[in-house]
């Protein structure tokens, strides 16, 4: 887990999420999703706060936060690029999109660019199989993507910066 100073993190957002679920520990998975949405990742102080408020051991929160693939315990970039590696995408060449993203951003899967603009993730299936191969940048879907188009798409986000 990355070291983050507690005083830098505003825990009010976490409290808001926990309150929304009435502090009920059975909603832990949803609470972590919503707090991740609020902070863009799951900093250690937030996990500690969740454990404290739900009255469960931190180890339990950590277990859940590391079990599910959608949780990130590392700070993520502004835009999250997700290359779909579902079967249909894989058969239509998602490996080459994966390579193209890696080449263009010079980071490995799970990594974030030095300027904190992009984080590179893969996803098991987005359910848009008929449009394979698919990748998403933030909420936007790119369908029938070729490796050659990846660079252009990324460049358009760099310009927005």
């Amino acid at each position: 887990m990355q070291a983050t100073k507690t005083d830098e993190i505003d825990l009010a957002k976490a409290d808001e999420v926990i309150d929304k679920y009435g502090g009920d520990k059975s909603w832990l998975v949803m609470i972590l999703q919503d707090t991740q949405q609020a902070y863009n990742w799951l900093p250690k102080p937030v996990l500690e706060r969740v454990a404290e408020r739900l009255e469960i051991p931190l180890s339990h929160v950590y277990n859940v936060a590391t079990f599910y693939s959608s949780f990130s315990l590392k700070e993520r970039g502004q835009y999250i690029i997700r290359v779909c590696d579902g079967t249909a995408c894989h058969m239509r060449g998602s490996t080459w999109l994966y390579d193209a993203v890696r080449r263009e951003l010079d980071i490995e899967e799970g990594g974030t660019t030095a300027d904190r603009l992009f984080t590179f993730e893969t996803v098991a299936c987005l359910g848009a199989c008929a449009l394979a191969p698919v990748l998403t940048i933030g909420p936007k879907y790119y369908v029938h993507v070729t490796p050659e188009q990846v660079g252009k798409a990324l460049a358009s986000y760099r310009k927005r910066k």
Partner: peptide, 25 residues
Amino acid sequence: ISRGAGAFVCGESTALMASIEGFSG
């Protein structure tokens, strides 16, 4: 509604239930 968090095994009935209860699947 309970949202899954990205785990294929949670399609399995007992894993799914564990997930709704707030545990790893």
